[in-house]
Simulated assay, not measured.
Amino acid sequence: MFRDKDLDLLARPLHAFLTVAPKAGRWPSPRPVWYELAGDGTLQLFSFAEAPKVARLREEPRASLVVAAPIGEPEHWVAAEGAVTIHEDGAADLAARLAARYYDMSDPAKQKLVAEWKDAPLVRIVLRPETVNRYAG
Rank of each mutant, 00 (worst) to 15 (best):
R31I: 15
A21F: 08
S64Y: 03
R62P: 04
A80W: 01
D104M: 11
P52A: 14
A92R: 14
L113Y: 14
V114T: 10
A24F: 12
T131L: 12
E59I: 07
L37Y: 06
V54N: 06
T131G: 08
L37C: 09
A68C: 14
N133F: 12
L45H: 05
A136G: 07
P30I: 03
P32F: 07
A109P: 05
V20E: 00
K110I: 01
S29L: 13
K5P: 13
D119T: 15
G25L: 10
V78C: 09
P30A: 10
P28R: 04
G82T: 10
D89T: 15
K23H: 01
R56T: 02
Q44I: 02
V67I: 15
L45A: 10
R58C: 00
H76A: 15
F48Q: 11
K23V: 00
P129W: 04
D4Q: 12
P108F: 03
L9C: 08
E75Y: 11
P74I: 00
R12K: 15
Y35C: 03
E73Y: 13
A63W: 05
A120E: 10
F46G: 00
V33N: 05
W77E: 01
Q44F: 03
V123L: 03
D89V: 10
L9W: 04
W27I: 08
P13L: 09
A115D: 14
K5Q: 13
V123H: 00
E36H: 09
A95P: 00
G82E: 09
E116K: 14
G72A: 12
H76T: 03
P129R: 02
G137S: 12
P108D: 08
F2R: 03
P13Y: 11
E88C: 00
A69R: 09
V67E: 02
V123K: 02
K53Y: 10
I125G: 01
L37K: 09
R31F: 12
V54D: 01
V126K: 06
L45Y: 05
L57G: 03
P61K: 07
V126Y: 03
I86Y: 05
T42N: 08
K118L: 12
L122N: 01
R128Y: 04
S29Q: 11
